[in-house]
Design a binder for these strands. Structure first.
Lengths: 339, 339
DNA sequence: ATAAATAATAACAACGTTGTTATTATTATA
DNA sequence: TATAATAATAACAACGTTGTTATTATTTAT
């Protein structure tokens, strides 16, 4: 069994309550005594028993993350970033990859201080939990728990509208529109809405390119098929960073030039990746903004401050070398064209 | 705050100790009483407080997994499989993606029953822990904790030796030999050892093809470069399933035929994937075997049974349509060649 | 019908910790 | 030097649960 404060107390010749105070750096115990106790605790390799501590304090200083879709490596980067942020706030992160309801029950038993549910499929708002829940996914009127929404729909819309205003008409979207993943569906919806808004006469469906998966190769394969077809699009909106990497390879291979022959805007949360050949135009909420907001909402929820149940993050459009304005349009809108 | 057995006791008009027994289905409480209590507990949405329970029982029925490399999606499938296996054994899994020492301390505080460390980098055998640790990685004489080793070195050796005995000489290995990941390094070592054993005169280094990453596209890119070169290898050993998928695409694209022009054996743990165009020859310890063994070792460790500190799993060579014997060799060894 | 046996339930201690209250040791004040 | 004030430490209760022991209710045997 582990070392307890009683062991330390015995070894230091003081009462165990003094040990408790010393270790929590209470001013109620004299400096030299404190030091002696801390030293002994270190020597014995003492680790406070979380069960006992959370039993009495009713706080565990732990956040439980429910992440049932571990295999779709999707949120890995976000979880890493959030984990760091929470560590700064002296919270510990535990992850469960179990099915949503089971995971929520587990975290209830463990009395974590709050649960973060990565919700890209089912609706979590039916589950009961005495531990407060925060959801990361898609906000809507039925949300009962605070839901942070990276507003993927608006992100893609923004990209499309920008491309439209830059004179592009032959815009395609490469992404997943058939899968179960509601986050992907949102992006598709954004594309459709924006395109229908810009070019009501067009048939949007022909501009949607379905991928076989969300990895780099899938982007590559999809783009290649596109390039086989008769007419090249002037702009591509890509559903994810990985897909974009593949698309870029296909562009390269086809001998096309970016952004002269084709413009690309990628949905992306990641901080600027410098291993790109071309500085990439991106749209999306930056990873740090998401994890900061998630941490904020979690803390607020723990502090019983009630927050909105729908928290939309603002996607950022970052225009860089991989996209350009089409000459005619730029002219027609009275804007100069900058190569 | 959550519902406790005292709330249930009050509501049922019995003492809380009776509630405790009823919920644990003790024969010490009369059937109708038991039923009534269980019903009430259900209605109130009672979840036993894990802190209190593990405090008194000194068991948490929880396994902590340390997985600092979440972003290298590597072990995702294994963790999923193991999670299921442990659920069958009525253990709950919690994951920490923190740095090894921090994660181990966290799990010590939580008094999990055992820790599983995915150890593909640093050496965990220095860390102190009162909770028993099991490691999944590379076993060696310095291992102080039981270490389950999928024997990647031997797996690749087996593949190479098989190919050698099938008459192949121009064998290449596509994989990662430069990264930090010791698991990958093991595979490379296996390839080198087997090749040097078979063809001492050859320069092995020219047969090692370094990939840029471990994703499908990286396999594709590496294979393509190989196929540009003068002389085609007769056989490829691939370091991972994803790489293999890419390699196959490159083979296709080049118009080569498998296994007539080229044989492929892939390192792989996954159960047969049927989305392959060619039934794949693979080598490796099956995923289920790994997770079963990990679960076994964890249980044994919890039960204080002492196990070996080095547990090597036996890789399986599964020869299928993607590889063939070379005619001359088959003849020279007196074996018939089956197309 | 009553004592003895047994079934059912209640009461209590313990797990390791924290916060509060009580006790003892030390210092300051007269 | 005695006394009040304060500093330092010790003792205690509580958190929610389980396992053991004590009590009460019920059955069995005579």
């Amino acid at each position: 069994m582990g070392v307890t404060i009683k062991d330390i107390a015995k070894s230091a010749g003081v009462s165990y309550s003094t040990v408790s105070k010393a270790l929590r750096d209470s001013p109620l115990v004299k400096e030299p005594t404190k030091k002696r106790i801390i030293d002994i605790a270190g020597q014995l390799g003492y680790q406070p028993n979380a069960a006992a501590r959370s039993l009495v304090s009713k706080k565990s200083h732990t956040i439980g993350i429910v992440w049932p879709t571990i295999e779709r490596a999707a949120h890995a980067a976000l979880i890493t970033s959030l984990n760091q942020r929470l560590e700064q706030l002296s919270y510990t992160t535990l992850i469960s990859i179990n099915e949503m309801e089971f995971a929520i029950n587990t975290f209830n038993r463990y009395q974590v201080d709050a649960i973060l549910a990565f919700d890209d499929g089912e609706n979590i708002h039916n589950y009961q939990s005495t531990v407060p829940i925060v959801s990361y996914g898609i906000a809507n009127s039925a949300s009962v728990y605070p839901t942070v929404d990276a507003n993927r729909r608006k992100a893609i819309q923004t990209a499309v509208e920008y491309l439209g205003s830059a004179g592009h008409q032959k815009i395609i979207y490469i992404g997943d529109m058939l899968g179960e993943d509601r986050l992907q569906q949102e992006k598709t919806t954004g594309f459709k809405q924006a395109m229908t808004g810009l070019y009501p006469a067009d048939d949007v469906s022909s501009r949607l390119i379905q991928v076989a998966g969300l990895e780099q190769y899938d982007g590559y394969a999809a783009a290649r098929e596109v390039f086989e077809a008769q007419e090249l699009p002037t702009a591509i909106v890509s559903g994810s960073h990985d897909l974009t990497r593949g698309i870029l390879r296909a562009v390269h291979e086809k001998g096309l030039s970016i952004p002269n022959d084709i413009s690309i805007i990628s949905y992306d949360n990641l901080p600027e990746s410098d291993d790109m050949e071309v500085p990439l135009s991106t749209v999306g909420v930056p990873l740090a903004a998401i994890s900061d907001k998630l941490a904020d909402v979690l803390m607020a929820t723990i502090q019983q401050e009630n927050t909105d149940t729908a928290i939309y993050l603002e996607p950022e459009l970052k225009i860089s070398g991989s996209s350009r304005k089409l000459d005619d349009s730029a002219v027609s809108r009275g804007e100069a064209y900058h190569g």
